[in-house]
């Protein structure tokens, strides 16, 4: 019983963390290139509705996920066009994108309220899923859960082990230097923005296709904002984003369990825990100032105009 419950808590944590992780890892790449897109919530919502729409129109779960990434990327393209080509303020444009995405997704989703699609199927990893505790906790999930870990690994590999990643990070350090060396700053940043949008869309679709297979206005309920905070929490490192998502998800799940056991702590106080925990852990992490500075993209949020 104890093993079962522990396994279940871990599994629930991972599921709760997956949409956060997907959106955060996308935003992390965007920010590493020096662009701050605060429109994650809006892109997640548009991804959620696009994925749901395509799935319920017969496109299947896979089609839905592709559609969600495309929709998220399309939203990001709008953001990228405004901020990179027209040099609009990134913070304001991102917030406006969330407003726009909230309205757009509500508009597009009007016909889908009250319907459902089959939940994204679980894939039991042979043998591993049979292990007590570890099996149900880690090896009996849907494809996107495994996918989110693989994407995290791929992003880490790309950023820190490839030339492309080095160039991308250079954009985030100093666009002018990168430009002087001859890299197409705007093109690379635009690609990073698109990736961020696609991942946010995927995170949104995780909610509407896997976590709770339904569409409803504002169903992300603030997860896009948490994902943004997790990028900062992670000090812009992919594995730490995963750690942050799992801590946040874990504390959320744990407080629900504590309530279910009948412990008399006000639920509002328990609901504060994930936010408080994130602050406390970040304080501990960032005490080493130099390491944070090394990871934080120096040019984050700064506009760039190529000069001759």
């Amino acid at each position: 019983m104890f093993l079962d419950t522990t396994g279940a808590i871990i599994a629930a944590t991972i599921i709760a963390a997956t949409p956060l992780l997907l959106a955060a890892i996308g935003e992390l790449v965007t920010e590493k290139s020096g662009v701050l897109n605060l429109g994650v919530e809006g892109m997640m919502l548009v991804g959620a509705v696009a994925g749901f729409a395509v799935d319920s129109a017969g496109g299947g779960a896979f089609g839905g996920l592709i559609a969600a990434m495309l929709a998220g990327a399309a939203m990001a393209a709008l953001f990228g066009f405004l901020t990179l080509f027209l040099l609009t303020n990134q913070v304001a444009t991102g917030l406006a994108l969330t407003m726009f995405g909230t309205g757009l997704s509500a508009l597009a989703g009007q016909g889908f309220v009250g319907t459902t699609v089959p939940r994204l199927g679980k894939i039991d990893i042979p043998l591993l899923s049979q292990i007590p505790l570890l099996g149900p906790a880690f090896f009996s999930h849907d494809a996107l859960v495994y996918g989110s870990v693989l994407i995290t690994a791929a992003v880490w590999y790309f950023l820190y082990r490839t030339r492309g990643g080095l160039i991308l990070r250079a954009m985030g350090e100093s666009a002018d230097v990168a430009h002087a060396i001859g890299y197409p700053v705007i093109g690379i940043r635009f690609a990073a923005v698109l990736f961020g949008g696609a991942m946010a869309g995927l995170g949104g679709a995780y909610l509407s296709l896997a976590y709770t297979p339904l569409w409803a206005e504002n169903m992300t309920a603030g997860r896009g904002w948490v994902a943004l905070a997790l990028v900062v929490f992670a000090t812009w490192r992919p594995w730490r984003a995963m750690l942050g998502a799992y801590i946040f998800g874990g504390v959320t799940i744990a407080q629900l369990h504590v309530q279910g056991m009948g412990v008399s702590i006000p639920p509002q106080l328990l609901s504060m825990l994930p936010y408080a925990a994130t602050i406390v852990v970040l304080v501990i992490i960032s005490r080493d100032a130099t390491r944070v500075k090394l990871n934080a993209p120096a040019a984050l949020g700064k506009p760039f105009l190529p000069t001759a």
Binding site: N89, A96, M99, F100, T102, G103, L104
Partner: peptide, 19 residues
């Protein structure tokens, strides 16, 4: 007019102003 249309319109207004 549904509120959703307002959201899209507000977004549009902000984009144009910023741009």
């Amino acid at each position: 007019m549904p509120l959703a249309v307002t959201g899209v319109f507000q977004g549009m207004l902000l984009f144009f102003l910023l741009a």
